[in-house]
């Protein structure tokens, strides 16, 4: 069976820096204070014509660098490309953060002696390795909306539909349509995709 390849795309021409995605994510997954799986950033702030905002989280990269460096092999990549990890295996060493081009992995300080606890990152609302939609899965990884057939909460809540998530082909089609509808700019690689999906 052929699986779709799931990707994130944030249209910087549409993102209005409302932070809705980030708030929706934190609320939906009941994240502790200090952890934000998704963050809205403004690039080239104050530079006229160059300033834009975009929403960043784990990009669920092809050949994910985090998966390559993990000393306990706690990462696993689903057939549809979603990069997940097992918090019961994770030792909180921080290596995935060093490897990540997007600064996505985060560490709550809940271990012994204030040590880093298990890593937390965006799951593309696909939970973790525990029983799907179990209480335990929800506590550790948040909602598993993918299993319920729902769109990840950040993209679902995006008011301008800047943030898109879905199979690579559909996303690329929307991207192309939007670029040509604007009448300027070239159809290149969407922002962030060069680092995440070129391999």
């Amino acid at each position: 069976m052929d699986y779709a390849r799931m990707k994130f795309y944030c249209d910087e021409h549409r993102c209005i820096e409302c932070d809705g995605c980030s708030v929706a994510c934190a609320e939906a997954h009941e994240l502790p204070v200090g952890i934000s799986r998704r963050k809205v950033v403004t690039i080239n702030e104050g530079i006229e014509g160059k300033e834009f905002s975009t929403s960043i989280a784990c990009m669920h990269c092809t050949d994910a660098p985090c998966e390559q460096v993990c000393p306990v092999d706690c990462f696993y990549i689903r057939e549809d490309g979603i990069v997940l990890h097992d918090k019961d295996k994770c030792i909180g060493c921080g290596y995935c953060l060093y490897a990540c081009p997007f600064g996505a992995p985060q560490f709550p300080r809940d271990g012994a002696f204030g040590a880093k606890g298990a890593m937390d990152k965006c799951t593309m609302c696909a939970g973790g390795p525990l029983e799907t939609n179990s209480k335990h899965e929800r506590e550790l990884y948040g909602q598993n909306r993918i299993a319920e057939g729902k769109v990840p909460v950040c993209a679902a809540m995006c008011s301008t539909k800047a943030l898109l998530v879905g199979d690579a082909e559909s996303i690329a089609n929307i991207y192309r349509t939007r670029v040509s509808a604007r009448g300027h700019g070239t159809v290149g690689v969407p922002y962030g995709w060069d680092k995440a999906y070129t391999k």
Partner: peptide, 22 residues
């Protein structure tokens, strides 16, 4: 820790990480 995957990660390797620091 280097061979963490051999030990399956989790509590045992986590304790070793803490001891390594302490």
């Amino acid at each position: 820790m280097v061979f963490g995957s051999f030990f399956g990660g989790g509590e045992f390797v986590r304790i070793c990480k803490d001891l390594h620091g302490v």
